[in-house]
Design a protein around this nucleic acid. Structure first.
Lengths: 145, 145
DNA sequence: CCAGTATACTTAACATGTTAAGTTATTTCA
DNA sequence: TGAAATAACTTAACATGTTAAGTATACTGG
């Protein structure tokens, strides 16, 4: 009967729970706008960059390319983003927001900010920045390669 | 042109990255044993409890019941877990590990502990317990209801 | 005792996660 | 220059996440 580290002592589990605690506050709102967390990430990143190719988009939105392919297909079909080919490198696709995409930003961004503020207030902004810095260090150090 | 909180300042993103940094160290090992992260969570929880019903299993393994249903179907088909009905309440199913399931524990648990120790050493055990405590607080406070 | 409600799953449907393999366009370098 | 290696996706296949609806059993109040 091997003793196993209990789940309450597993850091990956704690990270999952913390993330779920936060995301459960965003999801219902996003859902009202027909957005998933991932779709919203993609829209945000395109907005921040104005135009961006799929590779960089995957990196910045922290999505694997097969997921991104599907999400972009959806966002294109809904005319939220526009795809155009890169002239210099025909392998690349470049994406930008349509007017509809920009409208979504205008509607959704304030709501996410408000929820974000709630979380910061509930947890305490001092603790908030502490956990933030620790998480950053953790990602840097623990990441392989 | 609304200014949006950058991704580098988004706590949910930081939590995701930190978790990914950790999990990328476990996944290749689990894969060699034909396990996913979630299958391993389920096996661990059943082991800890000896026998457990699906409801409690979902809670402890932090899986939604539709996912759990599918995972248990797989683990049953591989004869890693055994399902039996609860006599007092015919709605419930009770699960326990088979000998094959226990063998998996014996093989995999030491490997996960070793990876876990690596992470703790790389990050520093002092920082480790700090982040741990902060995450716990965060989950408690931010969780709705 | 029984109609109404609640509980414990299971199914369904769609979206994303994960790995491997495929396709087309660019680079590299012999 | 042209075959081989790379790069930038896309497809495929299977697993899980997420919400809503379905099914069977247990409970509860009148």
């Amino acid at each position: 009967m091997i003793p196993i580290r209990g789940f309450n002592q597993s850091l990956p589990m704690m990270l999952l729970k913390a993330r779920e605690a936060a995301m459960s506050r965003f999801r219902p709102m996003l859902r009202k706008h027909n957005l998933t967390e991932q779709r919203w990430r993609v829209i945000r990143v395109i907005y921040e960059h104005n135009h961006i190719d799929a590779g960089e988009l995957a990196e910045k939105s922290f999505l694997l390319s097969p997921s991104l392919t599907r999400i972009l297909r959806y966002l294109e079909s809904e005319k939220i983003v526009l795809r155009s080919g890169d002239i210099k490198d025909q392998r690349r696709s470049v994406f930008r927001l349509t007017d509809k995409g920009k409208e979504i930003i205008n509607k959704v961004a304030p709501e996410t900010e408000s929820i974000y503020s709630d979380i910061e207030r509930i947890f305490g902004s001092k603790e908030f920045s502490k956990i933030f810095n620790l998480l950053e260090k953790f990602s840097c150090k623990v990441n392989k390669q």
